[in-house]
Each structure stands twice: as C-alpha cells, then as structure tokens.
C-alpha cells in the first residue's frame, strides 16, 4: 500500500467515478448495441445521460467502498485477494472497451480497403499519378514559385517581430525585475496560444479576413512562424554563456549594451540557422495551406483534384516532392556552412 492519505483516497474516488461512467457508456452504447446487436443506440439525451451518470456513480461508490475499485488499484489502495483481482479485471475491460470503441468510431472497414472494385479504383488513381501530365508544367512551376516566395515573405516579415519577442520571452533576461517579468509572462502566454493553433486554421481565418489567395496564406504562415521561432530564439538566449554578460556589465555598460554586445554575438548564428530551417518548413506548409485557399501550388492541386484530373495532380505532387527535397537539402547545407 503506497499511501492512505485522504487526498489520494479522494483522487482514487474521482477516478472511480470516471471509470464507472465511462464503462456504463462504452459497454452499453458501443459494445452491447453496435457490436453485439449491430444496432444504433438511442440518441444521447439529457435524461439518458443522467441514467448513465447515476449507474456510473453508484458503481463507483459500491466498488470504492469495497476497496475493489480501479481507482484504488491505480493508487495502490486495494485489499489483496479477490477485491484486487476485481479491480484489475475492471481495468483491462476498460482498456479493451476503449480499443473496440476506437475501431467502431473510426468506421474501420477492411472490405472498403481491399475489395476488388475498390482496389481497381485505387489502381487507376495511382496509375494516373505515376503518369504525370507534363503539359501543365509551366502553370505548376509558376504556382510553385508563388509558394516559395510567399513562404519567404512570411519568414522575412516574421523575423524582426520574432527577434524582439525572443528577447522578451527569455527567462534569464526578463527575471531581473517585476515589470519585465510581467512582460515575459504575457509574451509567453500569447505566443504559446498562437502556436497551439495550426497554420491550417490560421489560413482559414485569414482567407475569410483578407480573401482567398497568397496574401492569406502568407499571413497564416507569418503568424505561426512568429510564435514558433520566438520559442526557439528564447531557448537559445536562455542557453547562452552568462560569463560575457557579467564581464560587459562589470565595465559599467547599460542593460541594452549588455544585450547587444554580450548576448547578440552568441545567438546570431543559431538564429540564422533556425530561420533558414523555418523557411524550409514554411515552403512545406505553404503547399498544405494552399488547400484551404492560401494560394500557390496547393490551390492548383485542389483545382485539379476537384476536376478529377489525376494526371495533372500527379505532376503537382511530383513537383512538390522535388522542391521540398531540394529545400531540405539546401537548408541543411547552408546551416552546416554557417556553423
């Protein structure tokens, strides 16, 4: 027994209620109805939800009181013997129910994947993709150029903002007094929040805001670039050698001079390297962002896909793969060279 503090007993009980309700819902709605009866369960209305909730809570109280509950098992608070075995059975049943539920919810169907006519359709599609239509090469190339330039623009416009934010979110520089520490926390919260929204979603937001096209895609990439690079920059600043800062401070230099003369020389190269890498990532992302109206090669891909012209799509996919590989190679070489 690990500990019998009231706190862990309570935490175990909270887990037990979760297990109770979770088992009531998955066992009845998925395992019983969908798997065993192969029927749709009733719509989940409020009264029905209350029924599931009550069954779950009653189950939880009962098992918890018997010291035979899954929550207790997790905290090591069961009594050895049949009670402990019961708790273990509950845990594996919950595990199996979860896997089965995932399978059912995902509508996994081996028939759809491997039946004769489906396979034939896939064969045709791959056949078209592997015989690309080169007559649209010019159109595809100019769309690709648009993608490369829009991602370069996004990276360049993000750069000065990121540079400042990187310093403002570096703990070692901002911890000196309360005012700067408040700024540090605000910047951290803002960039963390911005970063947690995928560029694809930013592209949807901006295509509504400024209209579909490369500008919306550029803005989406820029916002996400600022948020992710600011984090990399600030981590780099936090890892610098503090010795030179101390030395410059000791000469009677002002805080801005300390940053400029002791911090900046240590981070220029890593910043440059991160930025080039980010451009590389942005080219890759720009192709995806085009799918939701962010301009460039992704836009073109969506148009031909909508028309079902798979040979053209094949050429575009080929071009994207080639450019992404090339960008990856070049950025790796450049980053190696400036180290």
């Amino acid at each position: 027994m690990a500990s019998t503090s009231p706190r862990s007993v309570f935490q175990a009980f909270v887990l037990d209620v979760f297990f109770g309700v979770y088992l009531a819902i998955t066992l009845h709605r998925i395992i019983w109805h969908r798997v065993l009866l192969n029927s749709e369960p009733n719509e989940l209305t409020m009264p029905l939800a209350i029924v599931y909730g009550s069954i779950g809570v009653v189950l939880a109280i009962l098992l918890h009181a018997m010291k035979a509950s899954p929550g207790r098992k997790i905290f090591g608070l069961t009594i050895p013997g049949w009670r402990d075995a019961l708790a273990v059975h509950m845990l594996w049943i919950a595990g199996v129910a979860t896997v089965v539920t995932s399978w059912v919810v995902t509508k996994v169907s081996l028939i759809d994947l491997f039946s004769g006519d489906r396979l034939q359709r896939a064969g045709q599609l791959f056949g078209s993709l592997f015989t690309p239509e080169f007559s649209i090469a010019g159109q595809a190339a100019s769309a690709m150029v648009e993608t490369i330039y829009l991602s370069l623009m996004a990276t360049l416009l993000a750069l000065p903002i990121t540079f400042v934010l990187g310093f403002l979110s570096a703990r070692n520089l901002m911890k000196q007094n309360n005012t700067t520490f408040v700024v540090y926390n605000l910047v951290r919260i803002a960039t963390n929040f911005t970063r947690s929204i995928e560029p694809l979603i930013w592209a949807i937001i901006f295509s509504v805001w400024v209209g579909i096209g490369p500008f919306a895609g550029m803005l989406a990439l820029m916002v996400h670039t600022i948020a992710s690079l600011a984090k990399l920059y600030s981590e780099q600043i936090e890892n610098i050698d503090p010795g030179p800062m101390e030395a410059i401070e000791a000469t009677g230099a002002s805080p801005l001079q300390v940053v400029w003369f002791a911090v900046v020389p240590q981070i220029v190269i890593p910043f440059l390297s991160f930025t080039i890498y980010r451009w590389d990532i942005n080219v890759r992302m720009a192709t995806i962002i085009g799918l939701v109206g962010g301009g460039g090669i992704g836009d073109l891909l969506m148009q031909y896909q909508g028309l079902g012209r798979w040979n053209e799509v094949g050429l575009i996919v080929l071009l994207i793969a080639a450019v992404v590989w090339l960008m990856d190679y070049i950025s790796a070489k450049v980053r190696e060279a400036i180290q």
């Binding site: 010795g243 101390e246 030395a247 000469t251 003369f261 240590q266």
Partner: peptide, 24 residues
C-alpha cells in the same frame, strides 16, 4: 574585472573585445 573563464565574446575580434571595455 577579469575572470577565470576570461569571458570574452568568443566569435568577435580581439579589438572588438578590447573596445567593449569602453562601453560605459
């Protein structure tokens, strides 16, 4: 002040490092 680890700005020239003593 001088230090055990010298605390120079490693990637910069000797002259740049000496000049940084006059920042104040």
């Amino acid at each position: 002040m001088i230090f055990q680890q010298f605390n120079l700005i490693r990637r910069r020239s000797v002259l740049y490092n000496v000049l940084s003593g006059a920042l104040g």
